[in-house]
Design a protein around this nucleic acid. Structure first.
Lengths: 204, 204
DNA sequence: TGTACATCAGTGAACGCGCGTTCACTGATGTAC
DNA sequence: TGTACATCAGTGAACGCGCGTTCACTGATGTAC
């Protein structure tokens, strides 16, 4: 039985690999169970022995993507002067670069909608929450007198704002912003937000 | 023939109405030609006498949505003290409110993707461009020495940032932010961005 | 004004495509004695 | 160790669903004389 189990584990791994590659190459909409099955050399029905359904598969790919993103943000956080403002800029740029380099995988993170009845599993939620700590920490240094709860909200706002710039910036829909310009704009805006927030905080 | 033409025009109007209602109620994915046809009392094939295809229909609904958004932003722009900072905050809040009140129609604006071969018609593009003037104008007052081109870029960045906050804020995915809190956060962040940008501008 | 004819809006069945998921069946693997 | 049996991974055809678009046909509207 252990040989069987081992193979199953490998197949499962291959399946996730295949799904990841498919999304990377063709986007979330380009994910087809039949193609994945062919890719890993099993019948399409066998996919359902390895994974409950496509939703679960997408979630597992998403988990990997988040893990890689997390690593990049960690690196950005510590790779440079420790001043919180500078750190926040680096983190925002790292986010931008990650999105640009993993465009479809990153999009899949936001495009994917579960069937309305079943909700996100806990591990998927905590994966996402975990990422906010990168923003939370510099903000905590910047606003030492604020409650954690307040800082969380600010972190969320800051993230949303940067996310918006990246999302619309990488969209080819309207005028495509060159990546270099986008990075410059992000730098400018993050600095502006931070100094603006600090100024408002000092003034009140 | 003119009676026929008149009826066609009315039917076309009804069709767009029906499409608008369908999107509002069930989202872009809930738009079905058969339902629209039934709604306006014609056979499903007749839809293609009124409009080239579904893409065109969605675009026309989008055009209406943009027109209403434009009106709201205009109102917000002039409804209050003329100071550019305050105006920008009002515009951002109006955008937030519009999105909240027209959630699915607003989402459709961003979700809709044309078939990869055919591109957006010109009128759809200019519709979108037009909206930026609301942001452009206060920014021009704020930075009188900057070139129009530069201001356009800043306008785009500012819009993207606010859009991101609204988009993630109205998403029920993670912790749903109460609308009141979202508005407060947007106010804070827009003020911070503006003061930050002005400070950076004065400093350089 | 009345008749023969042409046009074209309108019909709805059918085409074409796509795809996640299920299920009766098979055959290899592992177990029990 | 060898045989009979049980389990369950793996198969791939078929189910079920959905939907945009086309097209041969009809019948009402409008035109020409």
């Amino acid at each position: 039985m252990s040989k069987t189990l081992e193979r199953r584990t490998k197949q499962r791994e291959s399946l996730i690999d295949a799904a990841e590659n498919a999304i990377r190459a063709k986007g979330l909409a380009g994910l087809k169970t039949r193609e994945l099955a062919q890719e890993i050399g099993v019948a399409n029905g066998a996919v359902y022995n390895l994974v409950a359904d496509v939703d679960e598969l997408v979630l597992m790919v998403g988990s990997r993507t988040l893990a890689r993103l997390d690593a990049e943000l960690s690196a950005a956080e510590s790779d440079g002067p420790p001043a919180p403002e500078a750190a926040l800029v680096r983190i925002a740029l790292a986010y931008c670069d990650f999105a640009a380099n993993n465009l479809e995988l990153w999009r899949a993170l936001f495009e994917h909608r579960m069937a309305p009845d079943k909700l996100l599993p806990d591990w998927a939620i905590s994966d996402q929450m975990h990422l906010f700590r990168h923003i939370h920490q510099p903000l905590a240094l910047l606003f030492p007198h604020r409650a954690t709860e307040e800082i969380s909200i600010t972190a969320r706002s800051l993230f949303s704002a940067v996310h918006g710039m990246v999302a619309l910036g990488l969209e080819q829909k309207l005028i495509a912003v060159p990546l270099a310009l986008l990075r410059r704009e992000i730098t400018t805006m993050v600095k502006a937000m931070v100094t603006g927030l600090v100024a408002a905080s000092a003034g009140s």
